[in-house]
Simulated scan of single mutants.
Amino acid sequence: MTVAATAGAPACQGPDPVIRAPAFPIPAGAVDTHAHVIGAHDAYPMMANRSYTPPPAPEAAYLAMLDGLHMSRGVLVQISVYGTDNRCMVETLRAHPDRLRGVAVVSPDVSDRELEELAAAGVRGIRINVLFGGGVAMDELERLAARVAPLGWHIQLLLDARALPELGPRIAALPVEVVVDHIGHMPVTEGINHPGFQMLLRLMRDGRAWTKLSGAYRISGTGAPFHDTLAFAQAVVEAAPDRCVWGSDWPHVAVSGPMFNTTDLLDLLPLWVPDEAQRTRILVDNPARLYGFPTPTAG
């Protein structure tokens, strides 16, 4: 049965199907570290407490997006509407073991066997999402970190950076790497001097957090072409260039305004990171280290 949109989970639009070639050279081994696959609604039931109802974004469309952006590799992130049912993502990972890695959502009482199966499929981290329905609560942060630390996994956090002054000490004490989504997912109108954003920079400088250069449209106050995100993006790169990775956030779920072009998001990167060598670190070397991809020279 197709899952219908509800009052609490309105339907959202799909991505722009046109993927242009990027306006700047993409190095070999480049990784898009943040995207989702969404299966047919009758085959992959969605959570009742989800925040939105996305249209399908199947494996073929995802791979075509990677190819269009000249991305050698990709990282799939479990989407909130599926809760802890990672099947759709895992099936895609298993079909492309050399090209893809994943970030799953699991419950704190997940079995060792399930964790081992996820690792074998290419999962390298778990996600805690406190912004959309279907996620796992931040209360489970320490417990989940203890479960995945033996696997060498990281924890990815979808939160609003304005919560970081309180959460920062907990994050700093974790036995795992931490990755913060979407440049902190805090409105740029708050400014880079906001205590939450400053805590993010401090965690990065102290080697306790990574940041995804992604989701410009989620933090912009002016809309496309999202140039008001420049100060935020440059601040995290300046704080710890070895702890930044890039992601498209395709298929851009829960966008309320007009849909933009995915390539336009990638074309922000030279504005955010003018130095070509530094961009290569962000696109190639950093994600290879974080997700366990072989580097181009070693692979």
Rank of each mutant, 00 (worst) to 15 (best):
A4H: 14
A9T: 01
P17H: 00
I19C: 06
I19N: 03
A21S: 12
V31A: 04
H34R: 01
A35Q: 09
G39F: 07
Y44Q: 09
M47Y: 05
M47R: 15
Y52W: 13
P54M: 12
P54H: 07
P55S: 10
P56N: 13
A57H: 13
A61S: 14
A64C: 10
L69T: 00
H70F: 10
V77P: 01
V77A: 09
V77S: 08
Q78C: 12
V81P: 11
E91I: 09
A95Y: 05
H96G: 06
R101N: 06
G102K: 04
S107R: 05
S107V: 03
V110N: 05
R113A: 15
E114H: 08
E114L: 15
E116G: 12
E117V: 15
E117I: 14
A121P: 10
G122Y: 05
V130E: 12
E140I: 04
L141T: 04
A146P: 02
P150Q: 05
L151I: 02
W153A: 02
I155V: 09
L164T: 03
I171E: 04
P175H: 01
V176A: 04
V180F: 01
V180Y: 03
H185N: 15
H185V: 09
I192A: 14
P195V: 10
P195D: 12
G196I: 11
Q198R: 12
L201K: 00
L203G: 02
M204C: 08
G207E: 02
K212A: 07
L213Q: 04
L213C: 05
G215D: 04
A224M: 04
H227D: 14
T229D: 02
L230P: 07
F232G: 03
A233S: 07
A235M: 10
V237L: 09
P241T: 00
R243V: 02
C244F: 00
C244K: 02
C244V: 08
W246E: 00
P251A: 09
P251Q: 04
V253P: 05
A254T: 01
G257A: 13
M259W: 09
N261G: 08
T263C: 08
T263S: 06
E276A: 14
E276T: 13
R279A: 07
N286W: 08
P287S: 12
R289I: 15
R289W: 14
G299C: 15
